[in-house]
Amino acid sequence: MADIAHFPSGAVPAACTLPTAEQPLRLAEFDEVLGTAVRSVYRAEPARLRLELTPTPQVAARVADLMVREAGCCSFFAFHLGLVDGRLCWEITVPAGQLRVLDALAARVPADGHRA
């Protein structure tokens, strides 16, 4: 799904099973979270992205729901959502062959999201 914004043709990875008609809706869901809840972005390594989110129950629930649904159609994602020292962190990991997907997600975070 997330790869839809990266490729001009709108292609998604072959591993994605989300119906084509639903892909723009899922992308909008990612954009909503990335555009409103991300406090900072850290690319821990090429295949792992760490997003610090606004630490509220609503954000945690929204992200957890999105993670479960996205893992159902793009099984190559590994997600982890956790609360440490009052910080809500969402880690997204992909295999080396899916780095373009992670790049596309990171690029969708607004410029005011702090990057490290």
Rank of each mutant, 00 (worst) to 15 (best):
Ala60Leu: 03
Thr54Leu: 14
Thr56Ser: 05
Val41Cys: 06
Phe77Lys: 06
Leu99Ile: 07
Ala61Glu: 06
Leu105Ala: 02
Val12Trp: 07
Ala5Gln: 11
Ala107Arg: 11
Arg100Tyr: 13
Leu66Asn: 03
Ala2Pro: 10
Cys16Phe: 01
Val101Thr: 09
Val84Cys: 00
Asp31Gly: 15
Val68Phe: 00
Cys74Asn: 09
Phe77Pro: 08
Ala104Asp: 03
Leu88Ile: 10
Leu27Glu: 11
Gly86Pro: 04
Gly86Gln: 02
Val109Ile: 00
Thr56Lys: 03
Gly35Cys: 09
Ala106Tyr: 12
Val63Asp: 00
Arg50His: 14
Val84Thr: 08
Val101Glu: 12
Ala28His: 09
Ala28Ile: 06
Leu25Ala: 15
Ala37Phe: 10
Cys89Leu: 14
Thr20Lys: 09
Val63Pro: 02
Leu25Ile: 13
Ala116Ser: 10
Gly72Leu: 04
Leu51Arg: 06
Ser75Glu: 13
Pro110Leu: 06
His114Glu: 14
Ala111Trp: 07
Ala5Cys: 09
Ala44Lys: 05
Val94His: 02
Cys73Tyr: 05
Tyr42Pro: 14
Leu49Asn: 03
Met1Ile: 13
Val12His: 13
Pro55Cys: 02
Arg87Ile: 08
Ala64Cys: 02
Asp85Phe: 10
Arg100Ile: 01
Leu88Phe: 06
Phe79Trp: 08
Tyr42Gln: 15
Phe30Asn: 13
Ala61Gln: 13
Leu49Thr: 01
Asp85Val: 05
Leu51Asp: 07
Val84Ala: 03
Trp90Cys: 14
Ser9Asp: 13
Ala78Val: 07
Ala15Glu: 14
Leu51Asn: 04
Glu52Asp: 14
Gln23Pro: 12
Leu27Pro: 05
Gln23Gly: 03
Cys89Trp: 06
Ala107His: 00
Arg69Lys: 13
Ala96Asn: 09
Leu18Asp: 07
Phe76Cys: 09
Leu102Glu: 01
Met1Ala: 08
Asp103Leu: 05
Arg62Glu: 13
Ala96Asp: 15
Ala61Gly: 11
Arg115Thr: 11
Leu27His: 03
Leu88His: 05
Tyr42Asp: 15
Met67His: 04
Gly86His: 01
Arg108Leu: 13
Leu81Asp: 12
Ala15Asn: 07
Met67Asp: 10
Arg62Lys: 15
Val12Glu: 08
Ser9Asn: 08
Leu25Lys: 15
Gln58Gly: 12
Ala61Asn: 11
Arg100Val: 08
Leu27Met: 04
Phe79Lys: 06
Asp112Gln: 11
Glu22His: 01
Ala44Ser: 10
Leu53Trp: 11
Ala111Leu: 12
Val68Met: 00
Thr93Tyr: 00
Asp3Thr: 00
Glu32Ser: 06
Ala78Ile: 06
Phe30Arg: 12
Ala44Gly: 04
Leu53Cys: 04
Ala44Val: 11
Arg26Glu: 10
Asp31Thr: 15
Trp90Tyr: 15
Ala104Phe: 00
Glu32Gly: 01
Ala96Glu: 15
Leu53Lys: 09
Phe30Lys: 12
Pro55Glu: 01
Pro55Val: 02
Val12Pro: 14
Gly82Leu: 10
